[in-house]
């Protein structure tokens, strides 16, 4: 009876230690994962990057002729990992795609053309293996098509 009690106590102790560490990892991962965000913008481009059917001020909805340039897929992404390492330790990693932005990808667009976005989609999801691994992923993506602008002019220098 004494040996069974000692064994049971040992098991509970082991679970408790791991449980505390894992609870901290769980709380921390959910908290940090919930703070992850990403965005899609084009703050540094010098041509209009349009969303929606209206191409210009005072204009009506129209479909413009695409320029003979390849379609580009642009994305903003933030991925966060947390994993529990027996010890107890907590590992954290942040995988954000740096440098792959609309500004850098589309900087070649001639100033006489516009960029039209389509198929804009936003994603948010999390994979959880309790007490072991947490992966949180958010991203926004869109197709960017270069379109011809009749009578367009470039910004003055």
């Amino acid at each position: 009876m004494a040996r069974g009690s000692a064994t049971a106590l040992a098991v509970r102790s082991v679970v408790l230690v791991k449980g505390v560490g894992a609870s901290l990892a769980l709380t921390f991962a959910i908290a940090i994962g919930g703070c992850s965000s990403t965005s899609l913008s084009a703050a540094e481009l010098r041509v209009p990057v349009l969303l929606g059917p209206i191409p210009c001020i005072g204009c009506v909805a129209e479909a413009r002729q695409p320029a003979p340039m390849p379609l580009a897929r642009i994305m903003g992404r933030r991925r966060f990992y947390a994993f529990f390492v027996p010890g107890p330790h907590l590992g954290i990693a942040d995988d954000s795609q740096l440098g792959i932005s609309a500004d850098r990808l589309l900087a070649w667009t001639p100033c006489l053309d516009d960029l039209q976005l389509s198929n804009v989609s936003a994603h948010s999801w999390q994979v959880t293996v309790p007490f072991l691994i947490y992966i949180y992923d958010v991203f926004v993506e869109a197709d960017a098509t270069e379109v011809l602008v009749p009578g367009a002019s470039c910004p003055s220098p």
Binding site: P48, L51, G52, A152
Partner: peptide, 29 residues
């Protein structure tokens, strides 16, 4: 768990630009 949604503005009555630039009807930026 999570979700994925398409973001649209198909009935917008104004031009929406992700850049700081927008044109008028004559193509002037």
């Amino acid at each position: 768990a999570g979700a994925r949604v398409n973001v649209t503005a198909d009935r917008a009555r104004y031009p929406l630009s992700l850049s700081p630039v927008v044109r008028d009807g004559r193509g002037r930026p």
